[in-house]
């Protein structure tokens, strides 16, 4: 600790350095906070409702499987033109069901399980009906809502 080191030049350099590093620390706090504050790409958790594509593109007597969170859901337009939505996971094992226009039923390829258009298990091994979801229309967009 000589008198040289304690000189005003030395001190101001140290203060300048301190400010620089301090700015870096503040930056590494501010950056995550700013990123956090910016609205995320998906504005909210898609666990209660999900868009399921165009309603017009879904012809009567057809169905469409869409992802609902990490599980599939199936939207069906009945021959009468009504829209219905169910969980697309077969209640027997974990297979995904599909719509069979020839049977006019929801059908599981794995063990030939069949559900009617109300989601009731009517043939084959499925022990329970499919969970049903509410269907809403937002313009032409089908929105499936889980009943809470």
């Amino acid at each position: 600790m000589t008198s040289m080191e304690k000189g005003p030049g030395r001190r101001s350099l140290l203060n300048w350095l301190l400010g620089l590093w301090g700015g870096g620390v503040l930056g590494s706090v501010a950056y995550p906070v700013a990123r956090y504050l910016a609205p995320p790409d998906i504005p909210e958790a898609a666990t209660l409702s999900v868009g399921a594509g165009s309603a017009r593109a879904l012809a009567p007597n057809s169905g469409r499987v869409v992802p609902f969170g990490s599980r599939p859901a199936i939207v069906v337009r009945t021959p009468a033109g009504e829209l219905r939505a169910f969980s697309a996971t077969c209640t027997h094992l974990d297979c995904t069901v599909q719509y069979r226009p020839d049977l006019q039923r929801i059908w599981c390829a794995c063990h030939n399980g069949q559900y009617d258009l109300n989601g009731r298990n009517v043939a084959g091994p499925p022990p329970r009906p499919l969970d049903s979801y509410d269907v809403n229309l937002n313009g032409d967009e089908i929105v499936i809502v889980r009943r809470s």
Binding site: L18, V25, G27
Partner: peptide, 18 residues
């Protein structure tokens, strides 16, 4: 971030010493 913090701490340490 840790690097920045360590740099700041080292400089701060010097400042306190001085």
């Amino acid at each position: 971030a840790t690097l920045l913090v360590l740099g700041f701490l080292a400089t701060l340490w010097f400042t306190i010493r001085r």
